[in-house]
């Protein structure tokens, strides 16, 4: 769990997202639609982006999970966070954690910016700032601060 082994029991019906928020106290991940449409709950599971509302917590047993809490070092924001801040890519912040994890994954894997925004619903920005932030972020090759 963000580089640290964590143990917590979960009922089978508990989603990974809910488990992160309630049992592990990591409330940075936001659960929106819980149907895989909005993208707010995206986290990295063994390095790949998933909707944490559509993975059962018990299925993540033994897996590496990365959430938005892993991106900043203390008060120093990570690169995806800085891009969103500088391009005004957020307002209320509800969709932000999922998008940040997709941006992080995209830069690590060299995925194009055009792959990132699909599947992430934002009701504040009109996507202008978001698109600018994602393009700025993905234009830079991955470096040490992008790795887990």
């Amino acid at each position: 769990m963000n580089g640290t082994a964590r143990t917590a029991r979960a009922e089978p019906r508990t989603s990974l997202g809910e488990h992160l928020r309630t049992a592990l106290g990591l409330t940075g991940t936001h659960l929106g639609c819980e149907q895989g449409d909005c993208g707010a709950c995206a986290v990295l599971l063994d390095g790949e982006p998933v909707c944490s509302c559509l993975v059962l917590a018990v299925q993540a047993d033994g897996c590496r999970v990365e959430t938005v809490e892993s991106l900043a070092r203390g008060d120093d924001l990570g690169p995806a966070q800085r891009a969103l801040l500088e391009e005004h890519g957020l307002q209320c912040g509800f969709c932000t954690p999922g998008l940040l994890m997709r941006m992080t994954h995209a830069r690590r894997t060299g995925a194009p910016a055009s792959d990132v925004l699909g599947g992430h619903l934002c009701r504040c920005t009109g996507y202008g700032g978001l698109r600018a932030a994602v393009e700025r972020h993905c234009a830079v090759e991955a470096r040490k601060e992008d790795q887990p």
Partner: peptide
């Protein structure tokens, strides 16, 4: 199909 974070699973 859908989006990359759906196709992962």
């Amino acid at each position: 199909v859908a989006h990359p974070h759906v196709r992962t699973r």
